[in-house]
């Protein structure tokens, strides 16, 4: 196993302090980490990408015994790439625990559950705050409001147009936890096989697709059809533009949300 150098350590420390970085930030962090400690860095773009991959593999091999990993994730909003430092032990949610009290953590778990249970991958912020009523220990609405702010600033959740959803960092970190805890309601994207909270659903079968996966998939088809081989129903959804950096418009969101009353809602494992 390759040894860590100071460049690796600096790179890792930035991940520990930030939690998640986008692809561009990772590249510039890689450059800075190498330059700071006079580590060779290739001029050639292709070579440099290869070097970065090796670099991350070395770090991952070294931090694996501590149940940590630098993992690549894709934003459910726009399909852009992110890299996050995640905890891969069974008790994934422990990493969050350091920053939060048990009661706050309970509220966050309830929030995760209702987001997973929703068809849009989001819940209204008032509904989110009302979750305090379901807690065993008392929490005021004000405290819940503060907690949402804290979760947002730590990049665990996203709040947009009064809707709360899980940010890429939370999905990276909690994907396994979500599948373990809510096996009946957590769905995988039919294309990339990863957890799918925000996306489009088939009208006739349980298939779900991320927006960015759908646009990639349907770009090759003239008449969009459900990808499931035993379904092939027409896919009458507005398709997001391909390779866009913009978040998918709220209109598209609403149109996919329109299929809401499907049979997806079942009870979570308790």
């Amino acid at each position: 196993m390759s040894q860590m150098t100071d460049s690796h350590r600096l790179f890792l420390q930035a991940f520990m302090s930030r939690g998640i970085l986008d692809a561009k930030e990772v590249k510039s962090l890689f450059r800075t980490s190498c330059e700071k400690f006079k580590t060779f860095i290739a001029d050639n773009e292709e070579e440099r990408r290869h070097q970065l991959t090796e670099f991350v593999i070395t770090i991952n091999n070294n931090i694996k015994p501590f149940h940590m990993e630098i993992k690549k994730g894709v934003s459910e909003e726009d399909g852009s790439n992110y890299y996050g430092l995640v905890n891969i032990s069974e008790s994934s949610i422990t990493l969050l625990a350091s920053d939060f009290t048990t009661n706050e953590l309970d509220l966050f778990k309830k929030l995760v559950e209702s987001i997973v249970d929703s068809d849009t991958g989001s819940v209204g912020s008032t509904d989110a705050i009302n979750l305090v009523e379901t807690l065993d220990k008392k929490m005021t609405r004000n405290d819940a409001q503060e907690l949402l702010k804290k979760l947002e600033s730590n990049k665990w959740i996203k709040v947009m147009n009064g809707q709360v959803s899980l940010a890429t960092r939370a999905i990276l970190e909690l994907e396994q936890y979500i599948f373990d805890m809510f096996p009946a309601i957590a769905t995988r994207c039919n294309m990339c096989k990863k957890l799918c909270l925000k996306g489009q659903s088939c009208d006739s079968c349980p298939v779900r697709l991320h927006f960015h996966c759908a646009s990639k998939f349907f770009s090759r088809q003239e008449v969009p059809k459900c990808p499931a081989s035993d379904c092939k129903s027409p896919w009458p959804r507005a398709l997001p533009r391909k390779d866009t950096d913009q978040p998918i418009s709220s209109q598209t969101d609403a149109s996919s949300g329109g299929t809401s009353t499907q049979t997806r809602k079942r009870k979570a494992k308790s």
Partner: peptide
């Protein structure tokens, strides 16, 4: 305590802090 010697200047660039 961090023991990497990242030098005197621009810690901001390499040590972004929330």
């Amino acid at each position: 305590v961090n023991k990497l010697d990242v030098g005197e200047h621009n810690p901001a660039e390499i040590w972004p802090d929330e």
